[in-house]
Amino acid sequence: MLISVKNVNYVYGSGTAYETQALKDINLEIDQGEFIGIIGHTGSGKSTLIQHLNGLMKATSGTIFFDGKDIYEKGYSMKQLRSKVGLVFQYPEHQLFETDIFRDVCFGPKNLGLPKEEVERRAKDALREVGIDEKLFDQSPFDLSGGQKRRVAIAGVLAMEPQVLILDEPTAGLDPKGRNEILEQISMLHREKKITVILVSHSMEDVAKYVDRIIVMNQGELMYNDAPREVFRHYKELEKVGLAAPQVTYIMNRLKEKCLAVNTDATTIEEAKEEILKALKQRSIHLPGNR
């Protein structure tokens, strides 16, 4: 077990008019190499939860274990934790500050106190992984396009070579092309470098395509924590909390209701296609005189 969250509660603004319980008794386990999607409505506590995972926020009660060690124990190095659990915030391009891209990406590894050659190697690797051309390295980050800025910012976290990469809505505000590129690159990192990825999103379509497990948050509580197809079975409950299953789920359910005996578990368009073709084939066999 890489990360284990035990009975975590988080209350902010306690004792004021704004007092809110952002997390309610969260229990969660994350294994090495998993690709997890966290989904929830705005204000459901998903951003709060991920900030607990790298120690930026401290739980009001409960504990979090990373690699078997209690991160709230005295003497536990938060700086080390943060180098192992990389967190990419929403709109990460807003954190860029250096005069050129390369230096900005070097910021993270440099803070880890690594030697200069290692810092530069990591920065180069990270920029290559997110698909930034070497020609752009000495440009100002403020001159890039939106999608490029975002990728540079993600590289800034990747350069620390974390074991776990958490991304808070990495596709927010990007066009479909930029969105697909980012998601594909993240998925490739997961496959090739075997890093654990936690993707926060409210697009079910994005999440369904890539993740092994979905965590649904609602009003500070874990609502579901299961494989995508299991979670999407509850599409009616998801609607009640302002979320929705992928459109494919709706189509499959409607088809089943109306006429076709399909398996409604499909979560992506490809799976649905297979499933519909299979069902159609079966039907044509069962219907005599069709051929």
Partner: peptide, 13 residues
């Protein structure tokens, strides 16, 4: 607060 957190996540002190 947000930027501070983002930079702390990148190891800033």
């Amino acid at each position: 607060d947000k930027i501070m957190k983002a930079q702390i996540a990148r190891g800033a002190d």
